[in-house]
Each structure stands twice: as C-alpha cells, then as structure tokens.
Design a binder for these strands. Structure first.
Lengths: 340, 340
DNA sequence: TTGAAAGCGCTAACAT
DNA sequence: ATGTTAGCGCTTTCAA
C-alpha cells in the first residue's frame, strides 16, 4: 500500500513535518491559515496515517485478538459478531482465530497474537486446555485477557459467563414438572467448567425433587455434534428402554437425538421428552420444535469486549477483576410435555 | 504489552544490536558461539519482535482484512473459517469486519482496513452497494482486493464465484423432472449478481422445458430471512393457489416456506415442492428435509485467500486477474418429489 | 507560530 | 565476525 506521508505533504507546502502533524491534530499553536492549507492538502491526497509508525511510537495497535474454539458455530458466530461490532464502536478491530478445541493450537494462537502486538485478548478456552501457562505468560507481558464462556476459575482475569448450574437445573426441573422421572443427561467433554456446572445442575435438580441420581443415565458426547446425539440415542434407549427424557448439553446434540427418535418412531414428547441448551436457530424448525435454554452470544461478546476495554483504559486493578454473568432463559417448545 | 527488545538483549550480552538481529535471523556472518548465546538469551526472555517496527520498515503487516455482509450466517461462517485457516497456514492473520449489507458501512470498513495498513482485502459486496469507488480507490493505493460470492463484473480484480445461473437452472430443472410445472421463485434483493444469475437460471430452465415464464411467479425477499419466507408463502398461495413448487434464493427463506406450509397442512412435496440454495445444516433437520444446492463456503474462502496470496506475492499482472468458479451440487432430500 | 531533533524497534547496507 | 549508521513515518519536547 502506497500512502502519502507527512513528509510529502510538508514538502509540497514548504513547511515542516511537525507543523503538518500538529495541523492535522488540531494543535492550538498552528495558525488557522496553515491549518487550512494542510487539511485541504491532506483531504485531496486522502491522507491516512501510517499505522505502523503510530503504533511503534505509542505502543498501541487498536487491534485485539479473539480466540474461539470454533468459527462455524452459531453461538460463537454471535460472539464474534458482537465483539467485532462493539470493538468497532470503540475504535478497535478484531483479529479472529480458531483453536479448534485444541490445547496446542490455542497456545499457538496466543503466540501469534503476541507476535502481532495486539492490545488485548478475548478467549474461550478449548475443551482440551489442561494448563494455563500460555494465558499466564501473556498476562505477564501485560496483555489484558478476558475469558468468556469456557473459563478457568484459577485464572485471575475478568470473565463473562452464564450461570450454567442454575440454567441446567431449571431445564431439568422443567422436565420434572412435566412429569418426567427417568431423565438421561448427555454431557460434554469432561474438562470445561460448563460441562461440570451443567451436570451438577442436572444432578441437583434431581435430588431436590427426590429423584435418585443414577450415574448410568449420564452419557458423554465427545464432539458435541449432531452425529453424537444421533448415535448416543441408540445406546441410551438400549440401556434404559423406559426412560422418559433426555437433557442434552447443547442443541446440536439434542437435534441429533430428535432425528434418531423420529426415525425410530418414538413419540416426542409423549414417550421421550428432549431438551437442549443454547437456543440455536435450528431448534425452532426441528420436528418438533426443541425446548432449550437461551444464552445470548451477543450479550456475552459485548460484555467481554467492554470488560477488555476497561482494562485497556487502565481502569482495572489486579484485585478487582470482574465476572459478568449473563442471564439465560428457558424456551419452551414442543419437544417437552405441558407442565402437569 | 512489554516486550524485550533487541537493544536489551544486546546490552545484556555486551554486543551490538545488529549482531543480535543477525544472529536471530541466522545470518552466515555471525560466529556460532555468538549465535548460540543470542538464541539462548532470546529464548529465556521469550523474545518476540516488535511487529510495528518490522512493519514500519518492511511496509508489510501480514494482516489481511475480510469483509462479510453478515457474520451470523452459516455460509459466511464457513468462509471466515476457511480464510482464517488458510491465512494462518501462510503466516497471515485476518481482521474480520461486517458490512451488514450496507453500502455506507462497507465504505467505512474499507477505510478502516486502509487505516490499519492491511496487506490485502477480501470482500463480498453488500446487497446495497451501488458504486465501486471505495473499491477502486483502495486498488489505486495498491491494496490487492479479491472479490468473492457477491462480486461486480465491472471491477478488474481476482474473483471467486459459483455458477449461479447453472446451479439455479439445475435446481429448477430438477423440479420440472419431478413433474412440477407451476414453479414460483423467491428471489433476493435486485442488485447482487447472484440474484440476477439465479433468476436467469430459473427462467432459462423453464423456457428450455417449454414452460412459459410468468413474471407474477417471481417474489422478492428483501431480507432473505426465515420471516420473509414464512410471510411470502401466504402471498404466493393467495396469488397462485394451484402452484406446485417454490424455488427459493436461499435455504433460510425456504425453511420459512416449509414452516408455513406445514402450518397450513399443505403436503410437502406432494402438493408443493420446495427447493432451497446453499445447503445449510438446518436443511437436514427440517420437516421434511430440504432439497437444495450445496455451495461450499469453505472452498470459496480458501480460493479467495489463495488468489489474494498470489497478488501479495506479486504474481498477478493487471491483465491476468483470475476468476475461480467453485462447483456446486444438487442435494436431493424429501421436500421434492421423486423424478418421474 | 514554526521548526529541529530525538526516539519508538528493527533491518541492512556499509564500514571496520 | 562485529559494529556503526541511516532510515522506515510519526509524535512531541524543546528551541527559535
């Protein structure tokens, strides 16, 4: 890219570089005549400062990094959208990277962002992240980091989460209120806090309602995919032919469950109720519509950027890292029975 | 971010900055002993060069800009994913921006990318882009631009497209082969080339099969949304109670159509067949599954970055801009009848 | 009111 | 084999 420089403008007007610079920044000690001449010239050559030079001098890039576990993913798309939008409103742009749920890749992406001298980083930890040294060493360099969605309790950063425990409890209790008593849970990979919390919410809802917790009713979906839900359905039905509901960690898996149940001509929700988590668009158009928990990726992304902005502006002390909890909502559709 | 500099390493080792620089770049004229000392030191302080300084000197940022009309959109998510992935393989990162189908916003996003001194830009034009001066002036600055998906024939850049005309023709002919004769088309906003080409493909398929083209069977979806499809269905049925198929510009609209037809207890495909475009995941789980045209966002994104890379490497002359056409495929599901 | 100069960190041509 | 120096474009302090 070939841009006109201050030097070129200065030469063309026969004044010094510093005067041009000051004129463009509306310094009070430049005569209005000079100012005008400079502004006109700048406009006519479409002057736009060399950001490398500015950044070198100020040590600020107005670029932040956003790491998501997956880009093709409705929830994370909403987060990306909100972060990009909120960042733009505040004069920042966003480099998007994908960890693909890999710990190694996640480390590399952090390194890349540090190499690029971003001003801050937003990250949802991958399902396989076992160690936080990469996050810690970025923090040691003074790069503000905000965790969202999949966080670690160990790390002392600002965070944006939902109340997974409570949301899962509400989902499970909804099933109980509709008369279900033998409820399976398809959980996610073991490490993320979200998995742990939703499982605990499920368990606590059962116990609170005097339903004993049966470990054999908990199944693991490794990939949280449609296929996982589809295939696990057969296992679940084989193990527990008499079950009356399935609470899935996430919508995509729940939709796999719905699809398989439909194929097997099992009546939903009369015979088996299904409930998901996230409220992806597709849960509106499945057959039947999927009852689920809505979590707003947009709100999570927006809050994450705003917390980061506080840090970028130096408004956050070590001791006062905030955690924002974004509300969730039960969305009742036809995959669950009416409340009895 | 506080990084160790070459100067600091040099001082610590009592050698000159340039020797440190050369050692890190494995220049042959540095003694292996010095090299070793420098590398060790660099590793121990986790040296990573200041990219601002490097960029200022080289006038290269290894950052590209990607403008999409919408981020929360399965097709564009695939494109973002592919661009980010392919860019990373080649040492680039990607700033993602959204035009939100607005011409004004699109202009601003181009300006922002120029301000950020990106090395190149990938863009799918917004539905409302009426004028290409913003693209042209970026090109005049020497910023390589590659258009993908929604392109303009006027602009002399590398492009990645699909054969919309042919794909739409295949979709329409499929309906004809299954015995449909009164086929409505829901088209997109008028300006984009994709709308024009798909409409022409629809029309040509009719004419080729001796079905007269009836303008009143063409409806416009302004937002290409679920709601548009849902609402247009009523209009279409009112205007043409005897129609037997609807070919929609895109899946989301087609799913709105399916939903409304289901509500009205109109048998799909016996009474009305529906065909979409794009092959979004949700078209697998609708009731019935949606016949559609698959277009690979991933391939489009990958090709787009690769074309840009050719330009970044200076391998493309003005006269030899390439246009890559990514293949599409008819995906037959249950929303269309069997071929007669 | 204007300009000169230093310096951000890095690279590379050019000494030594 | 190592070091000196100039310069990328900008900002800002200090001098005129």
């Amino acid at each position: 890219m070939i841009k006109t420089t201050l030097k070129e403008i200065a030469e063309a007007l026969n004044i010094s570089i510093s005067t041009v610079s000051k004129a463009l920044k509306d310094y009070p000690d430049v005569s209005s005549k000079t100012k005008q001449r400079v502004l006109e010239m700048a406009r006519s050559v479409k002057y736009s400062p060399n950001s490398f030079a500015q950044s070198l001098r100020s040590n600020k890039s107005y670029i932040i990094g956003l790491i998501v576990p997956a880009i093709v993913h409705e929830f994370f798309s909403n987060i990306i959208q909100a972060v990009v939008e909120t960042a733009k409103k505040n004069g920042y742009v966003v480099i998007v990277l994908e960890s693909d749920e890999s710990y190694e890749l996640e480390q590399k992406q952090i390194d890349i962002l540090i190499e690029k001298n971003v001003d801050g980083i937003l990250i949802s930890l991958s399902d396989n992240t076992v160690n936080f040294n990469h996050i810690k060493s970025a923090m040691e360099l003074g790069v503000p980091i905000v965790l969202y969605d999949k966080i670690s309790k160990i790390l002392n950063c600002s965070k944006v989460i939902i109340d997974d425990h409570n949301a899962a409890k509400i989902a499970t209790e909804h099933l109980i209120k509709t008369g279900c008593t033998k409820i399976a849970h398809i959980r996610g990979p073991l490490k993320p806090q979200t998995t742990i919390d939703r499982m605990k919410g499920y368990k606590d809802a059962l116990l609170k309602n005097n339903i004993s917790y049966d470990k054999s009713l908990v199944y693991e979906s490794a990939n949280l995919s449609f296929e996982d839900g589809y295939e696990l359905t057969d296992n679940i039905l084989k193990d527990h032919p008499d079950l009356d509901a399935i609470f899935s960690f996430t919508d995509m898996v729940a939709v796999g469950v719905l699809t398989r149940l439909n194929e097997l001509n099992i009546k939903i929700p009369e015979q088996v109720s299904v409930i998901g988590f996230s409220n992806w668009f597709l849960s509106q158009v499945t057959h039947p519509g999927l009852t689920t928990i809505d979590q707003s990726g947009h709100d999570i992304g927006r809050h994450a950027f705003e917390l980061l902005l506080d840090e970028l502006n130096g408004n956050v002390k070590e001791s006062e890292k905030k955690t924002v909890t974004v509300p969730t909502q039960l969305i009742v559709r036809k995959s669950t029975r009416p409340i009895v």
